[in-house]
């Protein structure tokens, strides 16, 4: 009797498996966006500080350094795309 109850408790229904998969996908999407966001932040930290330094000395290069500073944004965009692909 007790054995039958234990088997029933560990058995998973289809709904439970689907919910678990959805949860893992959401976790994966979250990690993809979050970690790439951190990566982008680290890259932009160095580029941004150099860009501010260069602009402080020569204001004419503002447009160029702004472009260079946002290049690491591509990393987080990749993460976002992966996240969206996982969810939809």
């Amino acid at each position: 009797m007790a054995e039958a109850a234990a088997v029933a408790a560990t058995e998973m229904t289809v709904e439970m498996v689907k919910a678990s998969q959805l949860g893992m996908k959401a976790l994966g999407a979250g990690l993809a966006v979050g970690l790439t966001g951190i990566g982008t932040g680290l890259a932009e930290m160095a580029i941004g500080s150099a860009a501010v330094g260069a602009t402080a000395e020569n204001k004419d290069i503002f447009g160029l350094v702004l472009l260079l500073t946002v290049i690491p944004e591509t990393i987080v965009i990749f993460g976002l795309v992966v996240g969206l692909l996982l969810l939809f």
Binding site: M45, A46, S49, A50, V52, G53, A54, E57, N58
Partner: peptide, 14 residues
């Protein structure tokens, strides 16, 4: 962190 170092060294290079 390294940010002020990068900032000032870039200014020196310019």
């Amino acid at each position: 962190g390294p940010v002020p170092y990068i900032y000032v060294c870039t200014r020196m290079r310019v």
